[in-house]
Amino acid sequence: MTKEQIDKLISAGEFPEHNGRPELIETHISWVILCDRFVFKIKKPVCYSFLDFSTLEKRKYYCEREIELNKRLTEHIYLDVQPVTEISDLFFIGKKEGEIIDYAVRMRKQDRNLQMDVLLSNNKVIHSDMRNLAKKIADFHKKTTIIYQKDLLDIRNKFNDLGEEKLFLQEHLTVDSSTIINNAIDISDVFMQKNTALLANRLNAGFFRDCHGDLHSRNIFLLPDPQPFDCIEFNDDYRQIDILNEVAFLCMDLDAFERQDLSNLFLKYYNDFFPSVETNKDHQLFVYYKSYRANVRAKVNSLRARSAGNEMARIIYLDEVNKYLGLMDHYIKLLTIE
């Protein structure tokens, strides 16, 4: 669908079991439409180096893939794939008549006040939540597919991609971002060179698995049984990672909320349920993964700042860049590279 068609769908379209005008949330790869009982997610017809939604057939395939993969971790949230149809310039979701112009993932709407990031902001996440979530993730990791083939140095290349943002950030941040980025890349290169054998051993030992891939607080509902949702469906490589890389993303996110107590607690509980940090080298790798995750968040927000529609949005994204650069710098300096 085009943005114009989405606007018509929102203003005058027809949705199952909904009255009134729905709410639209737009990301760089999808449109998310919030209705009374359901949420519909329509993939944008885009093609990037890391995903391809360029054809109707591919968008249908990845809608089905999204349902299949997310059902591994959620219950009663991901429902089905619904056709988006057009009849005489009017648009419908779930209607059998008309020309199918796209597809939408249908999800059961949840209480947004129970999203973990909202609860963290309101200081409502407690220690038992960490235990329940750690058990949920550990149990999932134990049974998901083991990956035995992986380009182990690809993460180093992804880490170094942040260097592409140096010139832009140097012009827009007051901190010496170029020095921070250069130092982090230098340490990352040495660390990866010295720990290639460790990564190979972890790969052979079965610690690389088909994970969630995007495990942070905004993608978790803290219901009585925690429900991590919105895993990566568009690129298997981003999801098939070291389980410590996955855990590090959530722990870095908790650190970003200034809740290192919860971060440490989550790792402790997770390691009790699924021992995966058993040596000092393992812990150093975990810290490296946290630095990598902060690095990626810094780059994403830098790209958002570049394309921001107004100055206020640009400032917000640059503040996020600054935060994540600080976290990356903190973690990378904890690594032993002698």
Rank of each mutant, 00 (worst) to 15 (best):
Lys281Pro: 00
Asp253Phe: 05
Val247Trp: 01
Tyr289Trp: 14
Lys290Val: 02
Pro224Arg: 11
Ala248His: 06
Asp255Pro: 05
Ile241Trp: 00
Asn295His: 07
Tyr270Gln: 03
Leu250Phe: 00
Thr279Ile: 07
Asp225His: 12
Asp253Thr: 06
Leu262Met: 08
Asp261Arg: 05
Leu262Gln: 06
Asn245Gln: 15
Asp261Lys: 10
Ala248Asn: 08
Asn245Leu: 05
Asp237Val: 10
Glu258Met: 11
Leu222Ala: 03
Gln260Ile: 13
Leu267Cys: 10
Glu246Asp: 14
Leu262Val: 08
Lys281Thr: 13
Met252His: 09
Phe274Gly: 05
Pro226Asp: 01
Gln284Cys: 05
Phe229Thr: 07
Tyr238Met: 15
Phe286Gly: 02
Val277Ser: 04
Leu244Ala: 12
Leu265Trp: 02
Tyr292Asn: 00
Phe274Cys: 12
Ala256Met: 07
Phe221Met: 14
Ser291Gln: 07
Arg239Met: 00
Asn295Arg: 07
His283Arg: 15
Glu233His: 03
Val277Trp: 04
Phe266Ser: 09
Glu258Gly: 00
Asp253Leu: 12
Phe274Arg: 08
Asn264Tyr: 09
Leu254Glu: 04
Phe266Glu: 10
His212Val: 01
Gln260Pro: 00
Val296Asp: 02
Asn271Ser: 13
Pro275Cys: 13
Val277Thr: 14
Leu262Asn: 06
Leu254Ile: 09
Leu223Val: 10
Leu250Arg: 01
Ile243Ala: 02
Ser263Glu: 10
Thr279Val: 12
Leu254His: 03
Asp272His: 14
Cys231Met: 13
Asp237Ala: 14
Arg259Cys: 10
Cys231Thr: 03
Phe229Met: 11
Leu215Thr: 01
Tyr269Cys: 14
Ala294Met: 08
Gln260Met: 10
Phe234Val: 11
Leu250Cys: 02
Cys251Trp: 00
Arg259Ala: 05
Gln227Ile: 05
Tyr292Lys: 09
Phe234Arg: 01
Ile220Met: 04
Leu285Gln: 13
Asn271Trp: 10
Asn271Glu: 08
Asn264Glu: 14
Ala248Val: 09
Asp242Tyr: 11
Pro224Ile: 08
Val247Arg: 03
Ala294Pro: 04
Pro226Glu: 09
Asp225Asn: 14
Leu267Gln: 13
Thr279Asn: 07
Asp272Pro: 00
Phe286Ile: 09
Asn295Lys: 06
Phe249Tyr: 14
Leu244Ile: 13
Phe234Gln: 08
Gln227Thr: 05
Gln227Tyr: 11
Tyr238Lys: 06
Asp272Ser: 12
Phe266Asp: 13
Asp214Cys: 09
Arg218Cys: 00
Lys281Cys: 08
Arg293Tyr: 06
Leu267Lys: 06
Val287Arg: 14
Asp236Asn: 11
Asp242Ala: 07
Asn280Lys: 13
Lys290Asp: 06
Val287Met: 12
Asp236Gly: 04
Asp282Pro: 10
Asp236Val: 12
Asn280Thr: 12
Phe273Ser: 06
Asp255Trp: 11
Leu262Glu: 07
Asp282Leu: 11
Arg218Leu: 01
Leu254Lys: 03
Glu258Lys: 13
Phe274Asn: 15
Leu267Trp: 03
Pro226Asn: 09
Asp272Trp: 04
Leu267Pro: 03
Leu254Tyr: 10
Leu285Arg: 06
Leu244Pro: 09
Asp242Leu: 04
Phe229Pro: 03
Tyr270Glu: 05
His216Ser: 03
Gly213Ser: 12
Phe221Cys: 04
Ile243Ser: 03
Arg218Gln: 07
Ile241Ala: 00
Asp282Trp: 11
Leu244His: 04
Arg259Leu: 05
Phe229Ser: 06
Cys231Val: 07
